[in-house]
């Protein structure tokens, strides 16, 4: 290990880590929005919406995220979508993780015993009220941990934008490997930063899960 080199380059890695954090936060927010919309569509009483929801999940989970990213960034201009690399990264990866989050959220909702909504309906609550007051609060608790798994995957997943030259952690590591010929040091430096991000997020998810846990 060339510690002198590590000390020299680590500020650039920290800067890059900020970009990775920005990408993570934005893609996860977009993913949660897409997941909620996708779930609403998949559980809708309208057949067209159910089909669209299922198609969204199937297409985005059935093809590589990298291809989706390339299609949007390089192919987008051909159909009138002009995005810079960072924007394409946020939108492409957000849509991608949104498909996985759709399955997580839907899974949590359908895991809630139907008797719960039924009991609420017999008290006179409308379908919407029963969902809002009874099914959803329970489903939200149930989805925290699996969404945490999605989020963990997505933090690492932001590395894909290195392939469209967004200067985040993996791109920076790749560039310094090329210029210093020290792959182990650069991997170690970027890797530690990823692990720090994932550990903090994981602790946050676990804290939230504990906080809302029922007796």
């Amino acid at each position: 290990m060339d510690f002198e080199l590590i000390l020299k380059v680590y500020p650039y890695f920290l800067e890059a880590a900020v970009v990775t954090v920005e990408l993570s936060v934005l893609t996860i927010i977009l993913g949660l929005i897409c997941g909620a919309l996708g779930t609403a569509a998949r559980l809708s009483r309208f057949r067209v919406l159910r089909f669209l929801g299922a198609a969204y999940v199937s297409v985005f989970r059935g093809t590589p995220a990298l291809i989706q990213l390339f299609l949007l960034y390089f192919g987008g201009p051909q159909i009138g979508i002009q995005l810079d690399a960072f924007e394409a990264g946020v939108i492409g990866l957000g849509l991608n993780i949104g498909a996985y989050m759709t399955e997580t959220m839907r899974g949590a909702i359908i895991a809630i015993d139907h008797g719960q909504a039924e009991a609420a309906r017999t008290l006179g609550l409308s379908k919407a009220q029963a969902f809002r007051k009874v099914t959803l609060p329970q489903a939200l608790r149930l989805m925290i941990r699996p969404l945490g798994v999605n989020i963990n995957a997505q933090i690492k997943g932001t590395a894909l934008v290195a392939a469209i030259s967004v200067v985040e952690l993996t791109y920076t590591a790749q560039r310094y490997i090329g210029s210093t010929y020290k792959p182990f040091e650069m991997f170690f430096l970027a890797g530690i930063l990823y692990i720090i991000l994932i550990t903090i997020t994981g602790k946050g998810v676990a804290y939230l899960d504990r906080k809302v846990r029922l007796p």
């Binding site: 015993d113 008797g115 719960q116 039924e118 009991a119 309906r121 017999t122 008290l123 006179g124 329970q138």
Partner: peptide, 20 residues
């Protein structure tokens, strides 16, 4: 139906209390 159901209380085999 919600108005009708408000007049009818129901008790289930598996209680269906709201755990949250």
């Amino acid at each position: 139906i919600n108005e009708m159901r408000q007049q009818v209380g129901m008790v289930f085999q598996h209680f269906n209390l709201f755990p949250h």
